[in-house]
Amino acid sequence: MQAPSPLIDRASLERLERLSVRWNRSFAGLLGGRNVSRRAGVGHEFLDHRNYHHGDDLRSINWRAYLRLERLFLKMFRTEPRTPIRILLDVSESMSCGGESGGEPKFSYACRLAAALCYVGLVRLETIVIYPFSDRLFESFRAQGGRHRYARAADFLEHLETGGKSDLASVVRSFSIDVTAPGPTIVISDFLDEGDTPAALQRLAAEGHELALVQLIAAEDRLPPWDGELEIEDAETGQTLHVQLDRETAEAFAVDFDAYSAAIEKVALRHEGRYIRLDTNVSIEDALYSSLTRAGALSAQ
């Protein structure tokens, strides 16, 4: 399964420009913290001009301005944050489920949500790193340098495909090896794997990352709409199970699901993180402006 194209239309993107990604803690090496850095330094984003002083780097002189004004001006650039915002995006096969009872499949929803977060971050000159994962980490994508870099990020997301089992424990191990500097980390997943997901998230938090856990659920994930004799097939493993489902069993199923979600939420809250459960019936804009903002993962200016 692939993400839809385009992920988010231009008008919706423009409405997201009031948002910014929030985090609470300061991380070593991060210059900007929750705010955009105003410190001039080495970077790509033009910040301002100042008069040339002896000893300044001649490569930064604005020669065009000199030809017009016969004065030397030095171009200053915005210093980039050192610690990026990392998005762990679940691309396991279970994300292809959903949409049978309305809404859309979890995977396309997750890609669109990741694209929206990426755009919000790029507008604020953040560095966004997207890590697709299933039972392992796939090649990541780094986006930085402003909103005009969004197209490449969207292109990256649009070419993702679902596949494989989800194994968050293995992914966290790999992530810990690759990423040594902790930072704000957004995990977008249904967290439906057979392993000990809360423990894996616990480990991720213990390594100093500030977690924002976005659990995507389809309606049938929590309360199965079916009735009678069913042959249940696991989307990831292909394993089947014959069950007799009635209303009482389905409601018990929902209780178990809610307990599992509470365990994940508990991990996030225990480490000053955030937990957001999103139903794929909700539009992306509503999720950003309502659920994520209310949970403190985003702020509107």
Partner: peptide
């Protein structure tokens, strides 16, 4: 009996008949 595809069998083995 209908064949349905679900995200995970994590909760199915516990409570269902």
């Amino acid at each position: 009996r209908r064949r349905v595809r679900v995200s995970s069998l994590r909760f199915w083995g516990r409570r269902s008949a």
